[in-house]
Amino acid sequence: MLEVAGLTAGYGGPNVLEDVSLDVEAGELVGLLGANNAGKSTLINCISGVLRPRAGSIRFLGEDITRAKPSDIVSRGIVQVPEGRQVFPRMSVLDNLLLGGTTAVARPRRADRLEQVFTLFPRLKERRPQYAGTLSGGEQQMLAIGRAMMGGPKLLMLDEPSLGLSPLFVQTIFRALRELNAQGLTILLVEQNLNLTLSCAVRGVVLERGQVALAGTSATLRADPRTRQAYLGL
């Protein structure tokens, strides 16, 4: 479904990603792991089109999207839940959700999807008229995921959704992700939480200083001592 090949990227300075390749098949939940600053966010920002890669290619559903605009990529069905949630703070929860479905392809289906999101996270329904900035961190994360779901993604990419959340909210979020995956949604999950990620991902890719250090099924990664080493940045 998603084929990233030989991706190299950076921010004005040296390469932050170098020759990264990664495939995600339809229906999979793939974990993207790695220590802080390994380049995980950079990779998914390239996929989302908000950062132009220096070399390499990104293909989605058989089509090249390497130089596509972010708005075009969302319309094609790749939606990102960004690191730090990035909700619109001075807008209501409802407005935030509606914005998630603002593309021309998503708009006709907004009413249905809103119901689905409220079923997934009933808390958001209660908080509908409230400013997003007044929500707790966990609620904001639910909102960020709900907002992404409003776009009707074929591939959902999440950047460290458990960051800074209480264990209870982490459970809620991961339960929701498993449920979405069970319903057939393809997910690329960037996480710090190694065990939790490997427990729900079929496969994982470990990035180390901008390069793929390891890749394999969750079971192999869990057994391989190098996973933990890469993770600790050793």
Binding site: V50, S71, V79, Q80, Q86, V87, F88, L98, L99, T102
Partner: peptide
Amino acid sequence: RRIRAVHQNPRAAALMGID
């Protein structure tokens, strides 16, 4: 709503598919 989104968080607005 799109204009307000761009004002409040342009990066997030782009990730919502807003040009």
